[in-house]
């Protein structure tokens, strides 16, 4: 399946590619960085060159910065300062026409500040940037607060919105469909689905801490690249991450659909079902 090429809606015959700004929203520790990091790595593997923006100043051990020096970091720690930085980056994006993956972290963030203080969605559309908003949630009601608040208090539900349930947040002892069923009973989720939001279940990954401790990309970890000062990784850990990267995450990306992802010139990644 080819990756999405979204054209300017004003003139569908004009083949002008709209850059995608993809942002994950949710409270702290719901898996936003894990999702964005894996997405950034897979997008690069598939020939995409999105800019990686990091305004998650609270998270120092598990961060998009582990992807390398190409990651752009906000020069301010405050939401207002970061919002200003973000505005600048978005303006540059209009010129460069690159896609961007943004990690805003949890809590009240620069993105919330932009949503509150400026008509962001309308502005982005006007600027020719396609905003993809991923709401990461688990089973706790608090996980859904952001979705509810932004929807109800700020009327924020961009056209390309996806509700992504992180399987890793689901309690042990309850199977995934059963847990998802319960989440789907939530009114904020139903409202989003009612208004056309997409949906996906992000696959759980084991051994995340070991990768975070090593400050490595997922692919480097799976490829057994050594990290100075760190012990050799376990073969089982590597196999698990490898299978997650080659089978589970690609399957999830297919479910989500190319319209909700940065451009991947080589197409969506193959789902490797065997021998991983």
């Amino acid at each position: 399946m080819a990756s999405a090429t979204i054209t300017d809606a004003a003139d569908p015959t004009e083949l002008v590619t709209r850059p995608t700004l993809l942002v994950a929203i949710g409270r702290q520790r719901v898996g936003k960085t894990t999702f964005l990091k894996s997405l950034a790595e897979i997008t690069a593997q598939q020939g995409g060159r999105p800019e990686i923006w990091n305004t998650d100043s609270m998270n120092r051990s598990h961060t998009l910065s582990s992807l390398g020096p190409q990651v752009l970091e906000a020069d301010s720690m405050s939401p207002t300062g970061q919002a200003a930085w973000l505005e600048g980056q978005i303006e540059k994006l209009v010129e460069s026409r690159h896609d961007a993956i943004l990690d805003i972290g949890g809590g009240w963030t620069a993105m919330h500040e932009l949503i509150r203080s400026s008509p962001l969605v309308a502005a982005l559309d006007e600027l020719g940037v396609s905003l993809v908003t991923i709401f990461m949630i688990g089973m706790e009601n608090a996980d859904i607060d952001y979705l509810q608040d932004l929807q109800e208090q700020h009327g924020f539900l961009p056209r390309r919105t996806a509700i992504v349930i992180n399987e890793g947040l689901l309690p042990v002892g309850i199977d995934t469909p059963q847990a998802v069923s319960q989440i789907l009973e939530n009114e904020a989720v139903l409202n989003a689905l009612d208004r056309g939001a997409a949906h996906g279940v992000f696959p759980a990954i084991n051994g995340l801490k070991k990768i975070a401790d090593r400050g490595q990309s997922f692919m480097d970890f799976a490829a057994n690249k050594p990290v100075p000062g760190q012990p050799k990784s376990s073969v089982f850990d590597r196999l698990r991450v490898n299978r997650w990267l080659k089978r589970d995450v690609p399957l999830f990306l297919r479910d989500l659909g190319a319209d909700y992802l940065p451009r991947m010139p080589k197409g969506l990644p193959d789902v490797v079902m065997e021998n991983v």
Binding site: R160, D194, G196, A198, H199, M273
Partner: peptide
Amino acid sequence: QVASLPATVPVCSDSETT
């Protein structure tokens, strides 16, 4: 179809909610 199931119900662009 294994590995290509659309769990994502296609988005309702400019959706008309009731």
